[in-house]
Design a protein around this nucleic acid. Structure first.
Length: 554
DNA sequence: CTCGTGTTGGCAAG
DNA sequence: CTTGCCAACACGAG
């Protein structure tokens, strides 16, 4: 376990010190009691513990200009999930004789003010590898060190410490999952049981004139009841996370035989996966505890699946992306990203909006996008389908645009994993077989030939016969009329033709790959610009040639 | 340099 | 339900 310790004890003794030693536990992710080393350390030999959560306006303040209800960064479903998680955390802290102190403002600034006012001796918080927190944490740590406050910042959000893996691999993160597994080995903590219970916590100290509040409601944060008919069915919080974990683990056979690629993306009444990702994202569930439970279960069965497809393999994917993201400058963009292929994506706002607003005209794609808006969660393969469609499969829109939409609307959206998967799906990194394109028609049909998933999330198509539900534009007009869904009026026509669009995408990627190879990855903005022009010229030439051919035939 | 491998494509044939 | 083919890539081990 890594932590930084600063004991430059030049602090002037204050009269308050006689009251006993105080610790501050700063919650950000890690919204849990179980397996929380920072909380445990804060509680150890302290007379008072201040459990603090700072409401960051950057993340929580309503933004009326955003394309969906929520803040500028997070949709309402995820904000609600976070609030529920905080309410649960507060209630669990109360059971231990403590409570959650909620403050509002820029987190670094607020934290420093708390440290100043409360005579804190130990500052404890879970280490966070995201750039946003890295910047805040440097500032807070600097202050704490200069004030002689001990800082304890353990890595407990992931199975491994990304920095350890990078070091073991010679300074660079392992670029493939298999090499990651080899370098990572077994987690250091896995040999002994994790500490998962706390019997009590020291009381909260006096907090003077700091503005403390209870966990606010979504309404108190300034969000109107938007009257949306269907909200996410997933409730936030550690209690819910542990319940869901126990439910999943209770079917040992299911866990032992779990194979990620074999799940049914159209299952929504009973999803084909655990739906523990949002709880892992906020740390309501410890990934280490989950991993340990899985190892215990595997020990007691005859045979079980293995990484990458097993359930434990999914946690390792999470660590893989965390490590890649931590060790790759500009991981969240194409420019200046060492591992990202430079591709002349377009920034067609109309195509992007059609995708985002579930009106591409492909019911399978649109239904998934509605599920994203309403639930903030979709099956992994459903995410693949829409991400592929937006980028390398059909629309050739920049993956960063899709990343932003997912980043906002998913309740489990996680900076490292979201960016990693968009790099993957767009064939920008990790995965390069751009000929393998998910069909927006046949992929969904394979799992759900009757279109139950489409009918649920796109009720306008609920009476469309199953023969046409994945391609309603092919239905004869009388059938469209009978189904009360005229394509072009009640439901949009396809924004592109999949056959020709996907062929064009493949051609563009082939050209872009060749350019990346030729320039050894050092593709400048001008290079991309001229490639874009060349591709357009070729396309126009193709179209003209086709017209000529048609003229000759006609 | 070659060769094997890579979490999850689509399609047709057997 | 399984197999082979499509057309083809990057990466890393040797």
């Amino acid at each position: 376990m890594r932590f930084s310790l600063c004991l430059t004890s030049n602090q002037v003794p204050s009269p308050l010190m006689a009251l006993g030693s105080c610790s501050l536990m700063w919650f950000r992710k890690g919204l849990r009691i179980h397996d929380n080393p920072a909380l445990e350390y804060a509680a150890k030999s302290s007379d008072f513990v201040y459990p603090v959560f700072v409401i960051d306006p950057h993340y929580m303040k309503p933004d009326p200009n955003a394309f969906s209800p929520g803040s500028s960064l997070a949709g309402l479903n995820r904000i609600r999930f976070l609030i529920e998680s905080l309410v649960d955390l507060d209630s669990n802290l109360k059971k231990l004789g403590s409570r959650l102190l909620v403050l509002k403002g820029e987190p670094g600034e607020i934290l420093i003010r708390c440290l100043e006012q409360w005579n804190v001796k130990k500052l404890c918080f879970e280490y966070d590898t995201e750039p946003y927190y890295q910047a805040i944490d440097v500032r807070v740590k600097d202050y704490a060190c200069s004030a002689g406050i001990e800082v304890f910042s353990p890595v407990s959000h992931t199975l491994f410490n990304p920095a350890d893996i990078i070091q073991k691999n010679g300074g660079k993160p392992p670029l493939s999952y298999q090499s990651f597994l080899k370098v990572a080995g077994q987690p250091s903590w896995a040999s002994s049981p994790l500490s998962t219970s706390l019997s009590s916590l020291p009381p909260v100290g006096a907090y003077g004139n700091c503005e403390i509040s209870e966990v606010p409601s979504v309404k108190e944060l300034g969000y109107e009841d938007n009257g949306q008919d269907e909200l996410t069915p997933f409730r936030g919080g550690e209690s819910e996370a542990l319940k869901r974990l126990r439910d999943s683990l209770s079917d040992g056979e299911w866990v032992a035989n779990f194979e990620k690629p074999k799940g049914d993306p159209s299952a929504f009444l009973k999803p084909a996966t655990t739906v523990l990702s949002p709880y892992l994202k906020f740390g309501c569930l410890s990934s280490r505890y989950f991993y340990q439970c899985l190892q215990d279960l595997y020990k007691n069965v005859k045979k079980h699946t293995s990484p990458p497809v097993s359930l434990a393999g999914q946690l390792l994917w999470r660590d893989f992306f965390y490590t890649m993201a931590f060790g790759t400058p500009n991981f969240d963009q194409m420019k200046g990203n060492r591992i990202c292929k430079q591709i002349p994506w377009n920034s067609n706002e109309e195509l992007l909006a059609a995708w985002r607003e579930a009106r591409t005209g492909y019911p399978w794609i649109d239904a998934i996008m509605v599920q994203l808006q309403k639930w903030g969660w979709m099956h992994h393969l459903a995410r693949h389908c829409v991400a592929c469609f937006l980028t390398r499969g059909d629309l050739f829109v920049h993956w960063e645009k899709g990343r932003d939409v997912f980043g906002r609307l998913l309740i489990d959206s996680d900076w490292a994993i979201n960016n990693g998967n968009w790099l993957w799906l767009s064939c920008s990194s990790f995965f390069y077989q751009y000929n393998r394109i998910y069909s927006p028609i046949s992929f969904g049909k394979k799992y759900d030939p009757n279109g139950k998933f489409v009918r649920h999330f796109l009720p306008i198509l609920k009476d469309m016969p199953k023969e046409y539900i994945y391609e309603p534009w092919t239905a004869p007009l009388n059938i469209q009329a009978k189904a009360k869904c005229i394509v072009g009026k009640d439901y949009p026509r396809p924004v592109v033709l999949h056959d020709s669009a996907s062929k064009e995408c493949k051609r563009r990627l082939a050209e872009a790959y060749a350019l990346n190879k030729e320039l050894n990855g050092l593709v400048s903005e001008e290079d991309l610009h001229s490639l874009r022009r060349k591709l357009e010229e070729d396309q126009n030439h193709d179209i003209k040639a086709k017209r000529q051919r048609q003229k000759l035939i006609g």
